[in-house]
Structure formats: C-alpha cells, structure tokens
Design a protein around this nucleic acid. Structure first.
Lengths: 148, 148
DNA sequence: ATCCGTATTGAGACATGGTATCATTTAACC
DNA sequence: GGTTAAATGATACCATGTCTCAATACGGAT
C-alpha cells in the first residue's frame, strides 16, 4: 500500500489506513483532474477487484469531509465530478456551454479566509472557487448572449 | 404568472416563459436558500400539481446554464442543493461536520474575474465560492483536528 | 383575438447514483 | 500473536435524474 501524505491525514484524523481507502485515493491522485464516480469505480475495480462499491462511496464521502477532494458540478444537474484539492483548495472556470473546465492557481483568498474565521468563529480548512461563463471556443461558435 | 427579472433573463436568452419555468423559479426565489431537488419538486407540486417531474429537472438544468441557480454539495456525496445566485454569484461556508451553511456577501472577486477574462479569453457570468471548515458549534463540541 | 410553427411539456418507464444492513475481515495497539 | 472496534463487501434497496413521444401552449404575425 502506498502511503501518500494525504493518506496520512486520514490516520491523523483517527481513521484506519485500509486498502480500499488507499486505492481510492491513489486513483484520484494518479488521475489529477475531475473524475466521475463511475470512472473512479471503474479504475478502482481494475486495480483491486475485491474492493466493493460501497467502500468507494464511503471513501469519497470521507475524503470530502477531510477537504481532500470535493464533488462539484460541471454540467447542470447531472453526475458530479470529484476533484482533488492538493493544498485544501481548488479553482476553475466552467464553460456553461461545453462543460470544459479551465483550472487556474492563484486566488488571493488567504486574506478573506482569515477575515471569515475571525468574523464567524470558524476554522477553515479549504475552499473551492468556481467561475461560470462561456469559453473562447464557444463564443466563437456563436452563442446566445444578448445581455449587452 | 409572476414575471421576475430573472425570469425575463430566460426570454432574453431565447427561451419561452412557461408556467413550469415560472413556478420552479418562483419556488426557489421565495425560499431564498439552499433547497434539495426533493424540496423543490414537492413545493412545485403544491403550487401546481400539473407540472411534471421532468420539467422541474429540465428547468433546474436551464437555470444552472444561465447561472441563475447553482447546484452545490453541502454533504459528502449525497444529494446536491440548489442555491439562487441573485447577482450571478454566491458565497458560503460549509461546516464539514454538521453541514450547516453560513452565507456571506462580499468576496472581492471582481478584480480576479476581470483578470481571468483577459487571461483565458472567456466571458464570465457568475461564480460560486465555498469555504470548508468546522463551525463554532462543532468546534466547541470537541472535534478531531490534530494538525496543530 | 386567432392562427401557426415550434419549443416545451407531462407521463411514466427506465437508468444511474448512492445507501442501509449485517456477517465477516482487518488495521491498530498492546 | 491476541483483542477489539472500525471498516469492509455483497447485495438488496431507494432516490435521483433522464428518455421518449404524443399532446400542449408560448410567441409572433396578422
């Protein structure tokens, strides 16, 4: 079993390091990007077919609670995708036409984060920032947008 | 049918103003907060029992594409909640323990938004900012957090 | 107000995504 | 190695969302 720094965060939080958990996290870490639950199930199954469906979902839930991954919607109400938040945060732009995601790094939210912690008495461990709009390709393709 | 400014955005974008759409949006606007699809279906049905399930989901999808609402997760991999983005944006803090959400207003993301538009050649219409952490109540209740 | 063309609808069967249960296994600690 | 509680896997189950298609109703023109 490969014990990544993120996997150790499980143990630090009082959870056991099991094969199922290591495999699920391994799959997501290897892929680095958005994955649907179906893709994760499929890849986990390839690596270790003895791992059950339920454990995969349980692990996704656990990783979400620890802010290691985050489920987000790239298309309307359909299947969510799970994305790794290596340093507790993630930022992307979602094209509302073609559902492509563009990821970017700096968000400058550290200051806001600290202010919110003080203001609301919370302890923040991560964040997700999503912008919505129309990507360059879709704009060129001629898209409905008569606001201006 | 009540025609709210947001409903007019549908027509502006080339979509018809139907009873189903007006009702779904009306429900969400009245509620002002996070709603699950089940709650929306239920409330829509109360207001007009002739509106079908499929239309509700189709409308949620449409409103999402127009950045009028946004589906987000407050708990792990379970049901998403839909939240209104009155001015195209929304910000909240989610407690990873009790799933309570705390909403806040200013995010100061206008500058970043403009920079991203220039940098990636996109036209942005809205954004969602989510912070994750442990709320005051849960911290007091004694929560696992041994990072420091 | 009425007519027309087309986007949208409602119904319900269907597909998919996620969960509960419970006997069995396994990680963590000694 | 032994102990114990957390975690697992199998599977049945439930919830959430989608597809199809004939029927309907919106919006524009008259």
């Amino acid at each position: 079993m490969i014990i990544s720094p993120r996997l150790e965060r499980l143990r630090d939080a009082g959870y056991k390091l099991t094969t199922a958990r290591a495999t699920v996290l391994g799959v997501i870490e290897t892929h680095e990007g958005h994955m649907t639950s179906a893709e994760i199930l499929d890849e986990v199954s390839k690596r270790d077919s003895s791992i059950g469906r339920a454990s995969v979902f349980r692990t996704l839930d656990l990783l979400t609670r620890l802010a290691i991954i985050r489920p987000t919607y790239t298309s309307g109400s359909a299947t969510p995708t799970y994305v790794l938040m290596p340093d507790g945060h993630h930022h992307h732009i979602v094209c509302v036409q073609c559902h492509q995601t563009i990821e970017f790094e700096d968000c400058g939210l550290g200051v806001l984060s600290e202010r919110l912690e003080a203001e609301f008495g919370v302890k923040l461990t991560g964040h997700l920032l999503e912008f919505y709009g129309v990507c360059g390709d879709c704009s060129e393709a001629g898209v409905v947008d008569d606001e201006g």
